[in-house]
Design a protein around this nucleic acid. Structure first.
Length: 152
DNA sequence: GCCAACGTTGGC
DNA sequence: GCCAACGTTGGC
């Protein structure tokens, strides 16, 4: 099993929104970055664990845990001309963008803030805190996963 | 293939 | 709201 971190703006979709879904599952649509797409399409497997990260908010940081509940399939929002993630270059018979479904596991007891993660030498290699990083889906090593949970 | 212009992300 | 750091686009 592998570990990941996925970013979402809580004003768009928060961990609370995921928890409130009837089956607590949601398609992770709207990713329009090739690196992030490749990880979802090629590497994320059923049951993989995910840190749910809130970005672009008062206290950016890790707020909860989710897991992969459906492996990659075409992101249908790319086909919908009225959707803000519409991409005319992606066709149903030749899709450009893929997504996975994620399912709520639990909220953390507290937000582990980005500022706190940056202070930890143990997390030096974490993609999230590399300068200029803007990836919305990124891998987390098992060691990093355990260490971050120990901060909770 | 180069690179300037432009758009987006996301912390602050 | 500002702006650094990217990624993408498109003219050449």
């Amino acid at each position: 099993m592998r570990y990941w971190l996925m970013k979402s703006e809580p004003s768009e979709f928060s961990i609370e929104d995921l928890e409130k879904r009837p089956d607590q599952t949601e398609p992770w649509d709207g990713v329009r970055n090739y690196q992030a797409r490749n990880m979802m399409r090629d590497e994320m497997k059923m049951g993989d664990q995910i840190f749910f990260y809130h970005s672009n908010c008062d206290v950016p940081g890790i707020v909860g845990i989710a897991k992969v509940s459906r492996e990659a399939y075409p992101d249908f929002t790319a086909f919908d001309i009225d959707n803000k993630h519409y991409d005319p270059g992606s066709k149903p018979d030749d899709p450009r963008w893929f997504m996975v479904d994620v399912q709520f596991v639990r909220k953390l007891k507290r937000t582990i803030a980005l500022s706190e993660l940056k202070d930890r030498p143990e997390l030096e290699g974490l993609a999230l805190i590399r300068r200029g990083n803007r990836l919305s889906v990124m891998p987390v090593s098992e060691e990093q996963w355990r260490f971050i949970l120990s901060l909770e």
